[in-house]
């Protein structure tokens, strides 16, 4: 693992996340959100989970970011000013971060350096999905079907 790559990806991800959380225009925030998820996918690549990184890019940038942009365009009349920050929210977020930082720095790590691993192939993931994880896989399939139908029913025109 390369520390220069780590620092660059961390800076990109956190800067884009801050932009997504603070930009006043919704559409800019949605694009920063997509950049944030590129950064998270790059972290997955850095950690050796290439398949998860690719899934992250497909699902978040291909689907969720496009859905968010479509929703912004559909609710455009309202997209005006999002004025000002709620300072209580800022305070709570900083307090939570301080608590997490304290817990992370206080705990002894499992291992200093990452142990060498054999590459995790898509073939291996497919085998595991079809053997040990077949029930979770079916449940996720059911959940996705239910979410699809539910979303369609929610946005269908009401009959008068």
């Amino acid at each position: 693992m390369n520390s220069v790559a780590f620092i660059l990806i961390a800076l990109l991800t956190l800067a884009a996340a801050l932009a997504a959380a603070s930009l006043p225009k919704l559409i800019h925030a949605a694009l920063s959100f997509a950049v944030t998820f590129v950064g998270v996918a790059a972290f997955f690549f850095l950690l050796g989970a290439e398949f998860v990184g690719l899934v992250q890019i497909f699902v978040y940038i291909g689907a969720v970011a496009v859905l968010i942009v479509f929703t912004i365009l559909l609710t455009r009349r309202d997209v005006g000013k999002d004025r000002g920050f709620n300072w209580a929210g800022v305070f709570i977020a900083i307090a939570v971060f301080a608590g997490l930082l304290w817990a992370i720095l206080k705990t002894q790590p499992l291992s200093i350096a990452a142990p060498p691993i054999e590459a995790l192939t898509v073939r291996r993931i497919g085998e595991v999905l079809m053997t040990s994880y077949v029930w979770p896989l079916q449940c996720v399939g059911l959940l996705l079907t239910a979410a699809l139908i539910g979303a369609l029913i929610l946005v269908m025109e009401e009959k008068r």
Binding site: L14, A17, A21, V90, V96, F97
Partner: peptide, 9 residues
């Protein structure tokens, strides 16, 4: 943790 707190914010 930083990403989580920005999301919380």
């Amino acid at each position: 943790a930083a990403l989580f707190c920005i999301g919380l914010l």
